[in-house]
Structure formats: C-alpha cells, structure tokens
Amino acid sequence: MRYMMLVTADESVELGEEAGNAVTEAAIKWVAEMDGRGVRVQGNRLRATSDATTVRVRDGEVLLLDGPFAETKEQIAGYDIIECADLDEAIEVASKHPVAKYGAIEVRPFWD
C-alpha cells in the first residue's frame, strides 16, 4: 500500500544549530534506511511557509494569499511517499523519522 507521510512541525521553534544538525543527520540516516528497504518511493523537504502562496479561485477570479492554506502552529515541513505492506509498517516507518520526536507525522493512504 502507498502512503503519504506529511512531516509537520512548529516552524516558530528554533532547534538551534547543534540540534538542527542532529536532526538533519538522523534524517539522512532515515532516508538511507528506508531507501535500502525499498520502502521510500520519493520525498523532499519544503521551504518555509513564508515562501508559500495559497491559490483560490472564486467567481472565476484567482485569489492569492501570501502564506500557507491554514494558519496552524504545525505546518508541513516535508513529505515522503512510502510503499508499505500495511498500516503497521507505515506506523513503524513514520515513528522512526526524526521529526516524529518533536513534530508530528500524518500518515495518509493514497486514493488508489
């Protein structure tokens, strides 16, 4: 089964250089492990929501908004597409992601 892992975290929290480097290092290890297992199909980090543009069309008019679609504390910081046997494996994969320790990871199955 294919799942989208939405890696979310509070953007306003500064990890600090040392902790930030540790997360990056752990993320590289995680990617290597999941690529090696053939679980990870594709993934990437996203730029901060200050670089986001939200697009809506209302009455035929394109409305733009500077920023993310929802003003919440936790924002999508990255994503990974994973191919797993079942939800238990997807949970195991997500729980090993370093951001799970301070942010949150939403695991959503693909439509088909």
């Binding site: 089964m1 799942y3 797993c84 046997a85 079942d86 939800l87 238990d88 997807a90 199955p109």
Partner: peptide, 13 residues
C-alpha cells in the same frame, strides 16, 4: 482504506 492488517500483532508489537 488505511490498510490496518488483519492479524495478531507480532511479539514486538
């Protein structure tokens, strides 16, 4: 839809 497995979890779970 979410692929919750139909099984007794393995020992470590």
């Amino acid at each position: 839809n979410a692929g919750i497995p139909y099984r007794v979890p393995p020992d470590h779970l």
